[in-house]
Nucleic acid binder design. Sequence first.
DNA 1: ATGCTAACCTGCGCGC
DNA 2: TGCGCGCAGGTTAGCA
Length: 273
Amino acid sequence: MPELPEVETTLRGIEPYLLNQTIQGVVVRQPRLRWPVAEEVSALAGQRVTGLSRRGKYLLVQFATGTAVWHLGMSGSLRLVKEEEDPRIHDHIDWVLESGWILRYHDPRRFGALLWQPPGEQLSQIASLGPEPLLAETLSGLSAESLYQRSRGKKQAIKLFIMDNHTMVGVGNIYANESLFMAGIRPTTAAGKISKPRFARLLACIRQVLAQAIEQGGTTLRDFVNSDGNPGYFAQQLQVYGRGGKPCRVCEAVLYEIRQGQRATVYCPACQK
DNA sequence: ATGCTAACCTGCGCGC
DNA sequence: TGCGCGCAGGTTAGCA
């Protein structure tokens, strides 16, 4: 479920509850996630959260002894609940805080993960990530120029190219569809055939779509909830995602739905060339 | 390297 | 109503 905006929404929501808090206890009801829940996490009692950040779709929670690295997979969510609230099905992990709040991880499909990164080390999953789309170009190195260079000779469809975490992080299926619509680019076009000006436009659209989605608290299709348990509101602004067969909101043409890389792609045959 | 597929897992909606 | 199928915000391993 969560793409960059949902992870960012989660980060902003949990940060005030977690920063400088001491972990009182950890409960792992189901350790079998995408990878087994890191052993080190169970030993966090007594340790204080010194910082929180996001890298791509990963949430990083820092302690003096290392960093807990959370990924929400397709259906994961983190929320704050009061200590007396009973866990429900698929509530796999609790961090009990000294404040009386519990950070509770819920994930029906269990594609998420909770890993541990020792100080000075970097997990392979983090190390291989491409640039952050919302960082200033001077900091991230992501630019129309870099995308143009990276894509030369590639036959891979542009949609798969921008969803590839080596190209840039955070762009999942919803926002790839939406960004390409906004940019007027057909998702099946070979990345290697996109001109530099079109990459400039596409990158601007990706940034705008992600930023707007963050402002709206993310997109809730089924189960995404923020740290308060509330949905995000960006779904109301989706132009193409989930709208195959319906009329384009701009030109009324019937939106096409196809499959790319086992994922639904929706586009307007008239607006996107 | 590139590019594609299958796989991990649960739940839901649809057609029969 | 019940059952089987296909689909769902992600990522990686493995193959040609």
